[in-house]
């Protein structure tokens, strides 16, 4: 007898191969995910392996849906992300893409702060649609996340982040992503949170405008609690605008650093 977990339920089986086990429990479905990895062929199953079997085109019960959304996460990663709390300051090109990436990754609690509404010039790089025009970015983003993973807790604050309210807004977060546009505001957030909060780690961004090589964008650990993603040079200015590819690369760097930190890895 061997114990395995199929679609979240513990089962005992005498079989040792995936297809035999599925036959034994009369489970249909063409997508087979074993311990977070999709497999295309029959394979030997070990004690305590986690199997997720998905029928394409069928919408599963609500209680199974969360499990299936997280099926591609490596076991033990999901649990750590589920209880994490991450703040995002600014929901423009960096913040909106970053929020979507963290939501897809399964970060359980997100604090999203921005004072602005969606306008047409945002659509060249920010994760919003025509039907969001005129709506607060916080609400438009929360709506998108609920369509990606409805099991996440998304808290939104529709206000400008200042030296006075920054610590209060992000106090409960383990990590805060700096995703502002203006350099003075980037510096303000970093200075305020690092001075006033003794534990928060900041993942900031600097230098991602234009279309020079995306390979110049890096993640660097600059201070004991500050990581900076970007090329550190290419600022947004006349003749060097912000464009989706490099902004998304930079947001991806930030999201990956957040993920690494949540899993206990401090190296950039």
């Amino acid at each position: 007898m061997m114990r395995v977990v199929i679609n979240g339920e513990k089962k005992e089986t005498t079989k040792y191969f995936l297809y035999d086990i599925l036959k034994e429990f009369k489970i249909g479905g063409e997508v087979h995910i074993v311990n977070g990895f999709q497999v295309k062929e029959d394979l030997k199953i070990k004690e305590n392996d986690a199997l997720i079997i998905i029928e394409k085109g069928k919408i599963p019960d609500r209680d199974k849906l969360e499990l299936m959304i997280s099926a591609r996460h490596t076991p033990n990663v999901f649990e750590k992300l589920k209880c994490a709390r991450v703040g995002i300051a600014g929901l423009g090109g960096l913040g909106s893409n970053l929020a979507i990436a963290l939501a897809r990754t399964g970060v359980g609690n997100l604090v999203l702060v921005d004072y602005d509404v969606v306008e047409p010039s945002n659509l060249n790089r920010q994760s919003y649609f025509i039907n969001h025009l005129g709506r607060p970015k916080t609400e438009a983003l929360k709506e998108q996340i609920s369509q990606i993973n409805p099991y996440l807790n998304v808290e939104i604050q529709n206000c400008k982040v200042t030296q006075k309210n920054a610590a209060e807004l992000f106090g409960g977060c383990q990590i805060v992503c700096e995703a502002f546009d203006v350099s003075q505001e980037k510096a303000m957030l970093v200075n305020t949170l690092l001075s006033e909060e003794k534990k928060i780690i900041i993942v900031a961004a600097s230098g991602m405008a234009g279309y020079t090589s995306a390979n110049d964008i890096k993640t660097q650990k600059k201070m004991s609690r500050l990581y900076v993603c970007g090329d550190l040079e290419n600022e947004a200015k006349q003749g060097n605008g912000l464009m989706a590819p490099r902004v998304q690369v930079c947001a991806g760097h930030q999201a990956n650093m957040v993920l690494r930190l949540l899993l206990g890895i401090e190296q950039p």
Partner: peptide, 10 residues
């Protein structure tokens, strides 16, 4: 000393 300078864009 570690001095981090920020440039605009986001």
């Amino acid at each position: 000393l570690e001095i981090v300078s920020f440039v605009g864009g986001g």
